[in-house]
Amino acid sequence: MDLDTALDTTVKKQESELREMEARKRELQELAKQQRFRPSDEVSTFKLIKSIKEMVTATMTLVSSAKRGFVYVVPAEALVITSLFGINAEAKKLKELGGYAKGITNIAYADIAPAQEVLDIGEDLRHYPDYGGIYFAVVDKKHCVSAINVDIKRISLNEPISMIWTDDSTYADYLCSTFEMLWEQSVPAAERIQELLKRGSPQT
């Protein structure tokens, strides 16, 4: 193929891609228009959560009132909090009643015990290495808490965090879709724990 033909092919390909993008834009605009004008009698609310104490209270309320189940993506430190403040006990009750509990976290050697505790109560837990996104949880595909800024330096009820709580079902759908994508990309926690145990403590 000579240079002119190669250039011509490239230009044609790009023109075709741009046309395809314009067509997709119109389709998406139409879809968004339909969704925005879809009548809804639901009223959604949201509020800010500003400390671990408020997060524990909100999570406890949500998990204990869950009818179907919950999914979450959290830092491993949060598994210590769910254990200490009785959220795991509520999750266990939900599992015994047939509910679902699926979680994703980043498990290091120091997190084996809290991760194992979550597995022992029957939750489906997975490991996602070096997760760099936003942490969140969704209960009954409706109630959501998602982080604005969660950098837990110590496990204390007064530790400041910024999270948003909402019962907007569209937002819940969005978080659930994100969760499903991450779930596919993660590995079972039990596998990860075995791997870490085989490797041994990084300090020894």
Binding site: M21, R24, L28, A32, S44, T45, F46, D168, T170, Y174
Partner: peptide, 15 residues
């Protein structure tokens, strides 16, 4: 809170 549209591909996100 927000009502909106969920986008599921890089190409759609660019559109």
């Amino acid at each position: 809170m927000a009502s909106g549209t969920i986008i599921e591909s890089v190409k759609d996100a660019i559109a």
